[in-house]
């Protein structure tokens, strides 16, 4: 499906991945690949580079920041924008900077509308 935005979602919450994939793809603008396993996620990103990666920070197998470092270190994936998804966000921080270690982040829970508008803002940059 040409013209669709390819999103790779790496999050250990299986149900979250399931509904985000459904909601984004429902709009007809996105093609979402989702995995609960960060190692699989890195592999998927290298073999089939997406337009943007949504990455959970706290995962039992491998921390999201370590996944990001690995992706940045690889020339095949280093140019893909990474957006962190995290439940650890305090009030006020969103309006402040929206970046962790130079990356973008989105606080969970998030509405589909907010998620889409933020993805689009990041891709425009």
């Amino acid at each position: 499906m040409p013209g669709k935005i390819k999103v790779l979602l790496i999050d250990d919450e299986k149900e979250f991945n399931h509904f985000v994939k459904l909601n984004l793809e429902n709009t007809g603008e996105f093609e979402v690949l989702a995995t609960e396993d960060p190692i699989v996620g890195i592999d998927l990103a290298r073999r089939n580079p997406p337009d943007l990666i949504l990455l959970d920070i706290y995962m039992p197998k491998l921390d999201g920041t370590a996944v990001a470092e690995s992706l940045l270190a690889d020339s095949l994936t280093s140019n893909i924008p990474i957006v962190f998804l995290t439940a650890l966000v305090k009030q006020g921080e969103l309006s402040k900077s929206s970046t962790i270690a130079g990356r973008h982040y989105i606080a969970k829970p998030v509405t589909t509308g907010d998620l889409i508008s933020q993805i689009k803002v990041i891709l425009k940059k």
Partner: peptide
């Protein structure tokens, strides 16, 4: 609070996405 928030926010995120899917 911070541990609790993290633990609760994840199911909340799932709920929100699920409800939005149902709505659609």
């Amino acid at each position: 609070a911070s541990n609790l928030a993290h633990e609760i926010k994840n199911p909340l995120a799932i709920n929100l996405q699920g409800l939005e899917y149902l709505k659609s």
